[in-house]
Amino acid sequence: MLNLLSILTGLLSLVIVIPSQIPLLGWGNWLALPLIAVGVVLGALSSKNTGRNFCLIVFAVAAIRLMIGGGII
């Protein structure tokens, strides 16, 4: 059950992260990061790794975009 919640949290975060890849919308990544962290915690508490790994991939995409944009743009 926790794995499913982690996957759903990751999908919701991905819906926020994808449009945030557009220039001047990078602030959306800051909104997605806490949600991704919740997904990682839920995935870590689960017996399976699928949800946690998915959330970590979404986190990597958001973090790389924030680093490229200097944390703001």
Score class of each variant (00 low, 15 high):
residue 1 M to E: 06
residue 2 L to D: 03
residue 2 L to H: 02
residue 2 L to A: 06
residue 3 N to G: 10
residue 3 N to F: 11
residue 5 L to M: 14
residue 5 L to I: 10
residue 5 L to T: 05
residue 6 S to T: 11
residue 9 T to A: 12
residue 9 T to K: 11
residue 9 T to S: 14
residue 11 L to G: 05
residue 12 L to N: 04
residue 12 L to F: 15
residue 13 S to N: 04
residue 13 S to I: 11
residue 13 S to G: 13
residue 13 S to K: 09
residue 14 L to Q: 08
residue 14 L to G: 09
residue 15 V to Q: 08
residue 15 V to P: 05
residue 16 I to N: 04
residue 17 V to F: 05
residue 18 I to M: 07
residue 18 I to V: 14
residue 18 I to F: 15
residue 18 I to D: 00
residue 18 I to E: 00
residue 19 P to T: 11
residue 21 Q to I: 15
residue 21 Q to F: 14
residue 22 I to G: 01
residue 23 P to Q: 12
residue 23 P to V: 11
residue 24 L to K: 11
residue 25 L to I: 12
residue 26 G to D: 06
residue 27 W to C: 04
residue 27 W to F: 15
residue 27 W to E: 01
residue 27 W to S: 06
residue 28 G to V: 08
residue 29 N to K: 08
residue 30 W to D: 03
residue 30 W to V: 12
residue 30 W to I: 12
residue 30 W to R: 12
residue 31 L to W: 12
residue 31 L to N: 02
residue 31 L to K: 07
residue 32 A to T: 01
residue 32 A to I: 05
residue 33 L to C: 00
residue 33 L to I: 13
residue 33 L to K: 04
residue 33 L to S: 03
residue 34 P to G: 03
residue 34 P to H: 09
residue 35 L to A: 08
residue 35 L to Y: 05
residue 36 I to D: 00
residue 37 A to G: 06
residue 39 G to Y: 06
residue 39 G to L: 04
residue 40 V to Q: 08
residue 41 V to F: 13
residue 41 V to R: 08
residue 41 V to S: 00
residue 42 L to Y: 07
residue 42 L to E: 01
residue 43 G to D: 05
residue 43 G to V: 00
residue 44 A to I: 13
residue 44 A to Y: 14
residue 44 A to F: 15
residue 46 S to H: 04
residue 46 S to C: 04
residue 48 K to I: 00
residue 48 K to L: 03
residue 49 N to H: 15
residue 49 N to Q: 13
residue 50 T to I: 09
residue 50 T to R: 15
residue 50 T to D: 03
residue 50 T to V: 13
residue 52 R to L: 00
residue 53 N to Y: 10
residue 54 F to H: 00
residue 54 F to A: 05
residue 55 C to P: 02
residue 55 C to I: 05
residue 56 L to T: 03
residue 56 L to Q: 05
residue 57 I to Q: 00
residue 57 I to Y: 09
residue 59 F to Q: 07
residue 60 A to P: 01
residue 60 A to C: 08
residue 61 V to E: 01
residue 61 V to P: 02
residue 61 V to M: 08
residue 62 A to R: 04
residue 63 A to M: 13
residue 63 A to Y: 13
residue 63 A to V: 07
residue 64 I to F: 12
residue 64 I to W: 10
residue 65 R to D: 06
residue 66 L to I: 09
residue 67 M to D: 03
residue 67 M to C: 14
residue 68 I to K: 14
residue 68 I to T: 11
residue 68 I to S: 06
residue 69 G to Q: 09
residue 69 G to F: 06
residue 69 G to D: 08
residue 70 G to V: 07
residue 70 G to Y: 10
residue 71 G to A: 02
residue 71 G to Q: 13
residue 71 G to L: 06
residue 72 I to S: 12
residue 72 I to R: 14
residue 72 I to H: 13
residue 73 I to E: 08
residue 73 I to Q: 15
